[in-house]
C-alpha cells in the first residue's frame, strides 16, 4: 500500500531476512555445507563465549564475598540447582549439569539474539528441535533404563477407574509424543514471532508520520522480548525437569 505512495525505495518489509542462514565469509547464496562457517556458527560461538564469561571468568577469583559478576553466576547456579532439586527430587541432582547446559545456552542465545542486527539461533526450529528431541530421547531412554518396563506405568493411570484407563493411556501416550514438538516449537515460535514483530514495527518507522508510534512500539516490544527471552529459557528448563521427573518416578 504505502509501497506505491513512497515510490522507488518505498516501504519494504523484510521481517524474515534476519533469520537467513548465510556463510560468514562469502556472499549470501554460497553453498552451505554442514561444516560451512555461517552466521549460525558465529552466534553459537558467541553464546559459548557468553556462558564462559558469565560462569567461568566471573568466578575466577573464588571470592567468599562475591562481586557483581560472581553474584550473577551464583544466582544462576542456585536458581537452576533449586529448580532441579525441587522438581525432580534428590536423585535428579546428578543430571543438573545437563540441565544447566540447556538453561545457560538458551538464555545466552536468546539474549544475544536481542542485540540489534544479530542472528537468533534459538529462533530456528532446527536448533530447538535438536534441544527438544534431545531431551525427549534422553528422558525416554533414561526412563526405561531406570525403571525397565515399569516406565510404561507412566501411561497407565492406576488411580483412575478401570474402564477409563485405556482411554487415559491413549491420551497420555499422545501427549507424551507431542511433548518434544511443543517443547521445541514453543521456544522457536516465541523467538521468531517476537523478532519478526520487532522488524515489522521497525519497518513502519520508515514512514515519517507514524515513526514515533512505530519507535515506541519497537521499544515496548523489545521490553517484552527481554522478558520472553528469560521466561522461555526458564520454561524450557523447568519442562525438562518435569520430563526428567517423569522418567525417574513414572508412578503417578
Amino acid at each position: 500500500m504505502a509501497d506505491e505512495a513512497k515510490g522507488g525505495g518505498g516501504l519494504s518489509f523484510h521481517p524474515m531476512d534476519q533469520f537467513q542462514v548465510k556463510p560468514l565469509f562469502g556472499t549470501y547464496g554460497d553453498p552451505i555445507h554442514w561444516y560451512t562457517i555461517t552466521n549460525v556458527t558465529f552466534w553459537l560461538a558467541l553464546a559459548v563465549l557468553a556462558v564462559l564469561g558469565l560462569m567461568v571468568l566471573t568466578t575466577s577469583k573464588r571470592a567468599v564475598v562475591p562481586g557483581r559478576g560472581q553474584s550473577v553466576a551464583e544466582l544462576m547456579y542456585g536458581f537452576v540447582y533449586k529448580m532441579v532439586e525441587d522438581v525432580t527430587g534428590k536423585d535428579g541432582i546428578k543430571y543438573f549439569p545437563y540441565i544447566m547446559t540447556l538453561f545457560m545456552f538458551i538464555l545466552c542465545a536468546n539474549f544475544l539474539g536481542l542485540l540489534p542486527t544479530s542472528f537468533t539461533t534459538t529462533s530456528h526450529i532446527a536448533v530447538t528441535a535438536v534441544l527438544g528431541f534431545g531431551v525427549f530421547f534422553a528422558v525416554t531412554i533414561l526412563g526405561f533404563v531406570k525403571n525397565g518396563a515399569g516406565f510404561l506405568s507412566l501411561f497407565w493411570v492406576a488411580s483412575a477407574p478401570l474402564p477409563l484407563r485405556p482411554i487415559l493411556a491413549l491420551i497420555e501416550i499422545i501427549s507424551y509424543f507431542v511433548r518434544p514438538v511443543s517443547h521445541s516449537i514453543r521456544l522457536a515460535g516465541n523467538m521468531m514471532a517476537g523478532h519478526a514483530v520487532l522488524k515489522v514495527f521497525a519497518g513502519f518507522a520508515q514512514v515519517a508520520a507514524i515513526a514515533p508510534v512505530a519507535i515506541i512500539g519497537v521499544m515496548a516490544i523489545y521490553g517484552l522480548e527481554v522478558l520472553v527471552s528469560a521466561i522461555q529459557a526458564y520454561v524450557f528448563t523447568i519442562l525438562t525437569c518435569v520430563y526428567l521427573k517423569d522418567a525417574l518416578h513414572p508412578h503417578h
Partner: peptide, 17 residues
C-alpha cells in the same frame, strides 16, 4: 549446518560448565 554447530556448541558449554 545448524545442527552440527549447535551440537558442537552444546558439547563445549557442557564441558565448560
Amino acid at each position: 549446518n545448524q545442527i552440527f554447530w549447535l551440537v558442537l556448541a552444546l558439547v563445549a558449554i557442557y564441558f565448560v560448565l
